[in-house]
Design a protein around this nucleic acid. Structure first.
Lengths: 329, 329
DNA sequence: ATCGATTCTGCAATCGATTGCAACAGCGTA
DNA sequence: TACGCTGTTGCAATCGATTGCAGAATCGAT
């Protein structure tokens, strides 16, 4: 592997000049620049990342810490983040926590010296830990609001309100909600919205679960949902809802004739044209992009720069396909 | 951040001894070992990865290059791989290629100096490139066989045969296959199996597509599938099949009364108890585990060591729920 | 022709851990 | 008592790129 010194020799300059030519072209005379560049090209030179990191303290990596890869919401966020990371000449480093606070802490701990900053998706650690981490490395948070940190969230309550409105309009009075991961910040938010709407005259809301957001758990919870006697089912996200729908199909319960269904989501299916699910869709890829943009900005600004503001992004609500007036049961 | 030298001073030894105490405990006297360890503990010392990588050439990272994160098969492989990587005190670095050869090459190129080895999932690069890469860094391949490289694959043909047998047994004569990613090694293998079975008396197979393995593309291809007049649909994987089933549901076509469906798969849904899909399931997590184990072995062995053998893992076939005798149409 | 300012380049130190080699102590044995 | 062996430890070089500082070169202006 060619080293910087080889390039320098080949170009007839010192290593320092070669270094500057490659990383700060404006500090070098045009003719020198050419010679160094073509020498580097010729030798196929690529800077040793470890050596660079050792002296600059920058690794070129951004860590993305996610609870779960099988959830398309996170997959899509990562895709969005990666797109922007590449533009900024950085790479993404993914850590999966399974929603466990210990694994989250462990991931952060042993990535801390290997990355330039963290994007934490739906983190479960305490706000204090997160802020402490931010004191050492730039941090942005997705899908949760943490005071003092740049946070990107989705206005799911707003989207949910539209679904409830539609259900009421169709004449539903009994809605079952299949709750998501216990202790999740998002689920708490959703239940709050739920509670608000549950106060509306003529609307009864029953909570089932909570379950982990997996296909199988949705299928398994279907019996419990049906037992509530509800005419509409709302699930924490559409992966769960897919499970519910499969089980409904197996039992011969038709959607939407017998039961209306919708997902509160944080997933991608809702955005898929042709997927006839009523769902409140989250702009997952945009969240990833925003987060990485903010992170890069913070890194460039240095530790004392003002940190960029967060945002709450609107949902896309699909009100079609799986909603119908309640059946007489 | 505490450096090795701080630990050494605190323990009253030289930096070299401190280094040895922490990484080769048997080269150091027991009493010294204790002093160094407790000093390290006290100062919260963690070795600087860049400095270590610079001198040893080892980064502690393994790269996993995958076509797509939204495909649960890859997500599950990663999960399996990560589990084993953690045991070996390494971290996984994920790169997504979208199935593009250029992006795959780019990912490999700029990860090469930052990782100790590569696990390539369903790589699309030429065998020559892959072997060249292996000359520089340990490489294992998943979901494709490349001569000269350690490869882990799944016996999908064997699983498919069982599905065909069952279809014939039920009386089906017309099967439509929804083909997967054009040019994919896996799809070629599956078509070959298909062609073999198509020769059986009384079984006609029609190929539709190819399409990319996405939910929406499955939904979009449904019209084409129905137009073949088939009584059974076989899809490249279950993500596609989910799309097909949704579209079938929307059109009022019942499964399995009107049409039997199954997925050739390489995904996780088949393995999910309660997901009533007939599918040939791939042991995705096991593939990931095997790959990482082999990779670590290769890294430990050094460049001249015999490379570990690959394997073909058996599928899990679920023959229930979505198969039925053909309807009179 | 000289001075000063400006632009460019090179020297040498630096980041932090690892490791070959030599020094050294302690011990048993001849 | 001397010798050699084993087991520990420290010295110093090393990995490869970056950067503050000083010196050299260039150019314009006086």
């Amino acid at each position: 592997m060619a080293r910087l010194e080889d390039v320098a020799r080949e170009a007839g300059v010192s290593a320092s000049t070669a270094s500057r030519a490659l990383s700060r072209p404006d500090m070098v005379a045009a003719a020198t620049l050419d010679r160094v560049r073509s020498a580097a090209e010729r030798l196929g030179f690529r800077a040793n990342p470890a050596a660079r990191a050792l002296i600059t303290g920058r690794t070129g990596f951004l860590a993305m810490v996610v609870p779960d890869l099988e959830n398309p919401f996170y997959a899509a966020s990562i895709a969005g983040a990666e797109e922007l990371a590449k533009e900024g000449d950085r790479r993404l480093l993914i850590a999966v926590t399974d929603g466990s606070a210990e694994r989250e802490a462990a991931a952060v701990r042993d990535l801390e010296e290997r990355v330039d900053g963290f994007a934490l998706l739906s983190p479960v650690s305490g706000a204090a830990e997160l802020k402490a981490l931010h004191g050492r490395k730039p941090v942005v948070v997705i899908n949760r609001k943490v005071g003092g940190l740049t946070s990107f969230t989705v206005d799911t309550p707003g989207g949910l309100a539209r679904v409830y409105d539609r259900l009421v309009e169709l004449g539903h009075t009994d809605v079952a909600y299949l709750a998501g991961p216990p202790g999740s910040w998002m689920d708490v938010r959703r239940r709050a919205t739920l509670a608000e709407h549950a106060g509306r005259p003529g609307l009864r809301v029953r909570v089932c679960g909570p379950v982990r957001p997996k296909f199988t758990e949705g299928a398994a919870a279907t019996a419990e949902l049906l037992a509530t006697g509800c005419t509409a089912v709302l699930a924490y996200n559409s992966l769960l809802l897919l499970g519910v729908m499969f089980e409904l199909g197996r039992r011969g319960v038709r959607v939407p004739e017998d039961v209306s269904v919708a997902a509160a989501d944080d997933m991608a299916f809702a955005g898929l044209p042709g997927a006839p699910i009523t769902a409140v869709g989250a702009p997952a890829a945009d969240l990833g992009r925003h987060a990485v943009r903010a992170l890069i900005e913070m890194i460039a600004g240095g530790p004392d720069a003002r940190r960029p503001p967060g945002r709450t992004l609107p949902t896309t609500v699909t009100l079609t396909g799986t909603l119908a007036p309640p059946a007489a049961r």
